[in-house]
Amino acid sequence: MNESDLPSFLLDGEEIPFTPGQTVIQAALTAGHYIPHLCYHPEFVPHGSCKVCTVKANGRPAAACTLPAQAGLAVESDTDELNDLRRTLVQMLFAEGNHFCPSCEKSGNCMLQALGYDLGVMTAGFRHFFPDRPVDASHPDILLDFNRCIFCKLCVRASEEVDGKGVFSLTGRGIMRHLIVSAESGRLADTDIALTDKALEVCPVGVILRKHVGFAVPIGRRRYDERPISAQALDDAPRMMEPKHG
């Protein structure tokens, strides 16, 4: 189909063509327009939990990742009000977990961190929860550091939908929400996770880490050292997108 034949909506005053079935964020990224996001992953059906991609559609707030694109929709995204909201949400996530970037191997490649940079977050601002979340180092090759979990469910979905294993699940309620693994012992070593699993690749933060890697890439050459997440996300966005899984 020719782009001009496609229906379109307005994003911050610019026309965004879309194929029916796409959500606002999918259409926007495909068309080369960035909307800040965290739990959305182009290969998975949108989850809509982090709410960082909240936009206003015809004046009503909605998560751009789960909002179906509709012809004639007027979407605001890059406004002071919405960016303030996103900053608050990112601050809430930083205050919720134990995010000590200097000691995290994912630093420089972490989406939460990169989003903080892009939004100009200088502090969590709120009082930190400092939760007690013991790490799981039982597996010989994989470390789980739950302190950094943001509950995006990507590992859960990747393990279920791609790896066919169901190694992970989210449980608990409210601020007690947490990630668990599929073993009576509760230990990752007693699951059938493998180094080749998709679940290892999708974590946007530093929860699922390969052991024996460490700080492999020097500071300055890591993913978000080189380019801000806004530029990187557009590079990663498939130009014509079909969700692959789910």
Binding site: N98, F100, C101, P102, S103, T123, A124, H128, F130
Partner: peptide
């Protein structure tokens, strides 16, 4: 002004908080 990770987040020393 809070300068640096420890002043801003508690930093490495705060990893004893649990």
């Amino acid at each position: 002004v809070a300068l640096g990770a420890c002043a801003v987040t508690g930093g490495l020393p705060a990893q004893r908080n649990h």
